[in-house]
């Protein structure tokens, strides 16, 4: 479903900096993994490569059998639109759209009919516990509520892959725990592949497996 084969990435500069080298990863639907590592080791780079937002210098990345490293920008964008969902540390909820409109954004980009979009948005808001906040504006919500909106947006179009980059980085511990539980629930409910990038062992423990990214590659650690 998602496989990375011998993927490498370096950044040019005064000295070329190798961020990823020889990365191997195979994930099937329903797999939920956490990726941990030191700051600057390349966790976000790994997410960007999987999302098609950057290109590896070497290796192949296959999503549902398609080698995305051979796709042009339009094809990558189309794939991303239909098959991927994103949850960010900074939430990235559009401040000028209401809660329901923010959640509906992926469906609007996919051209889903308004009635169907309404139904799915309502269903997703119900699932994340914001059924009565659809008409609210983002500035009226707390950090935890905003992250719920982001999770709803990431899953409303039933993506095959959900990428979460430090989703609890801006939250208090109680909110963080709720969000992590919700994230796992929704990923499992959608039978999607989930990749959680985090510094927190507690957050990583909510995943099925913990992978540690080092300068020599990805190494698996056991998880509860």
């Amino acid at each position: 479903m998602l496989s990375l084969h011998d993927v490498s990435k370096a950044y040019a500069g005064p000295r070329t900096r190798t961020v990823l080298a020889g990365i191997q990863l195979d994930l099937a639907r329903g797999d939920y993994v956490a990726v941990m590592g030191e700051s600057g080791v390349g966790k976000s780079t790994l997410l960007n490569l999987v999302a098609g937002l950057d290109r590896p210098d070497a290796g192949a990345i296959r999503v549902e059998g398609v080698d995305i490293t051979r796709l042009d920008d339009d094809a990558l964008t189309t794939l991303r639109r239909a098959r991927m969902g994103f949850v960010f540390q900074a939430f990235h909820v559009l401040p000028y759209l209401g809660v329901a409109q923010n959640v509906a954004l992926p469906l609007a980009l996919l051209g889903v009919a308004a009635r169907e979009a309404d139904r799915r948005v309502a269903e997703m808001l119900e699932a994340v516990g914001l059924a009565d906040r659809g008409a609210s504006m983002p500035r009226e919500l707390s950090g935890g509520e905003l992250q719920r909106v982001a999770i709803a947006r990431a899953l409303v179009h039933r993506p095959a892959i959900v990428l979460a980059d430090e989703p609890t980085g801006n939250l208090d511990p109680d909110s963080a725990a709720q969000i992590l539980t919700l994230l796992r629930e929704r990923i499992k409910a959608g039978d999607a592949i989930g990749i959680l990038v985090t510094h927190s062992h507690a957050a990583a423990a909510t995943a099925d497996r913990i992978l540690t990214l080092t300068r020599t590659g990805l190494r698996e650690e056991s998880a509860g």
């Binding site: 509906a104 309404d118 309502a122 008409a135």
Partner: peptide
């Protein structure tokens, strides 16, 4: 029903 109408524009 939640009003979720938004367009790319």
């Amino acid at each position: 029903m939640t009003a979720a109408h938004v367009t790319p524009w």
